[in-house]
Design a protein around this nucleic acid. Structure first.
Length: 466
RNA sequence: GGCGACGUAGCCAAGUUGGUAAGGCAAGGGUCUGCAAAACCCCGAUCACGGGUUCGAGUCCCGUCGUCGCCUCCA
């Protein structure tokens, strides 16, 4: 078995082999922090969190870098409007985003570099580009000279000539070629600026990622990820810059997630259809968001609407049932049931790995986990004991863990309320025996309102937190 | 206009190198229950449309229609 990854650069799925055996260097483009992050950002972060988790599960040691663009036009504009320092504004959204990641159970990156903390590396890189003739300075701006890159357009599948024709770009007469892009921008009065060989200025957007990759991961990396809206021009330009400086192929695998779709359209600022992560998490758990994401393939557009949210809310409940203990006074399931359970464990493990190895087919992997859930529940209803359920439940916990699902049920035995709940259950049992259903139902209903769900079985009643 | 992706049951969605369609949600029937809830069992598609290649195609090729993304900041 071996992992295969779809590579945007080669447009095919191929076996994953890292540069250095057992190690993976991975870089994912983080957000530009000028506003609250929305669920589209969450999707991307979740997709690559699962990639990272599966790589680690497969035995790789992963160095995972996610950047923050904390200086750009939009941040400056907004800061001016709010009357605060751009850096302060950026800082605030960075903290909020990290908080979002935590609430989504996304593993922290190994490093979170920021553009403003990499100025030296950026200037160094721009200098090298200029020295090599791959970039040129005009009035304090520095532009990348796309015509020096014979391969320019290889990631997005465009050709320079085609881009020039029909171009909707405002042509800046100072540029040698309309497609030349800024790697360094001269500062306008009042803007944050750093001293450089070309005067006061700040980095262009694309160069930061190139520089951070270079300084944090090296000249060549294994996986570069991001949303597919970044393919052009951002990633195309990253490749051009980095390869112009190093003379070596940059990233081995370019991975791009599809866009989250809201009412058939991409969620984006310009459409004004944003749902901030904060807002989503007010009403739903992080697991629900994650389940929505892993229910379909990461490269496909993600259908996101209230029906989907509701369906996944229910699917999550179903997953949780697998963790429930045996029925009261279970005496053990038949050998044939136990054999089937054992067989399902193996089938699920194999199916899970095969699906994930096939370019992170999380939906397929999830399907086989649901098969295990059904078998666990079946065994339980056939009288399996906790000991008999344990191996299957451990497998369940392990695999859902690889997908990053928390499935945190409020544990019994952890609150002081437990004893009182048991007491009420005993009381209710007596009332039922006396056929005093009015009162016994009232206990049940009132407990439900407190978040305690009662389940009656032929062998007695059990309860769990909602 | 250029580049790319997609169109599978009511909804979401998987489908490796082509051999007769995972899973989830919803709906319906049943078991259990005093009732309920949960769980368990049963139940649904020939894969946008039209051609072609093949012994055989959702899965490859061509065309049509439709949806979406990128080409400008964007996960």
């Amino acid at each position: 078995m071996s992992l295969k990854i779809y590579n945007t650069l080669t447009r095919d799925k191929s076996e994953f082999t890292p540069i250095e055996e057992g190690k993976v260097r991975m870089y994912v483009c983080g957000p530009t922090v000028y506003d609250h992050a929305h669920v589209g950002h969450a999707m991307s972060a979740l997709v690559f969190d699962v990639v990272r988790r599966y790589l680690e599960y497969s035995g790789y040691s992963v160095k995972y870098v996610m950047n923050f663009t904390d200086i750009d036009d939009k941040i400056i504009d907004r800061a001016i409007r709010l009357g605060v320092e751009p850096i302060t504004l950026a800082e605030q959204y960075i903290e909020e985003f990290k908080d979002n990641l935590k609430n989504l159970n996304i593993l922290p990156a190994t490093e979170y570099p920021r553009a403003t903390e990499e100025i030296e590396a950026i200037i160094d890189m721009v200098s090298k580009l200029v020295a090599k003739g791959a970039a040129y300075e005009v009035d304090g701006d520095v532009y990348f000279r796309v015509e020096t890159d014979k391969d320019y357009g290889k990631l997005s599948g465009r050709k320079l000539e085609e881009m020039n024709a029909g171009s909707r770009i405002r042509v800046d007469a100072r540029k040698e070629n309309p497609m030349d892009f800024a790697v360094w921008k001269a500062a306008k009065p009042g803007e944050p600026a750093w001293d450089s060989p070309w005067g006061l200025g700040r980095p262009g957007w694309h160069i930061e990622c190139s520089a951070m990759n270079l300084s944090h991961l090296g000249e060549q990396i294994d996986i570069h990820g991001g949303g597919n809206d970044l393919i052009f021009p951002h990633h195309e330009n990253e490749i051009a810059q980095t390869e112009a400086v190093t003379g070596k192929p940059f990233a081995r695998y370019w991975m791009h997630n599809g866009m989250l779709q809201l009412k058939g359209e991409k969620m984006s600022k310009s459409l004004g259809n944003l749902i901030p992560i904060n807002e989503f998490l007010e009403d739903h758990s992080g697991d629900v968001m994650r389940l929505i994401v892993i229910s379909s393939h990461y490269r496909s557009p993600l259908t996101f609407n209230s029906d989907v949210i509701e369906a996944n809310e229910r699917a999550l409940e179903r997953l949780l049932t697998a963790k429930r203990p045996a029925m009261p006074s279970s005496e053990g399931a038949s050998q044939s049931v136990l054999d089937e359970l054992e067989a399902q464990i193996q089938t699920t493990r194999q199916g899970f790995n095969e699906a994930m190895d096939e370019d992170f087919n999380t939906a397929g992997a999830l399907g086989t986990i649901f098969d295990l859930v059904r078998m666990i529940n079946q065994a339980r209803s056939e009288g399996a004991t906790d000991e008999e359920l344990a191996p299957a439940q451990e497998t369940f916990n392990e695999l859902t863990g690889v997908l990053g699902l928390e499935l945190a049920e409020k544990e019994k035995g952890t609150t002081e309320a437990d004893a009182f709940i048991e007491l009420l259950l005993d009381l209710r049992q007596e009332l039922r025996a006396q056929k005093n259903y009015a009162l016994s139902d009232r206990i049940r209903d009132d407990l439900v309102n407190l978040g305690v769900v009662i389940e009656d079985t032929p062998q007695g009643s059990t309860w769990h937190w909602e």
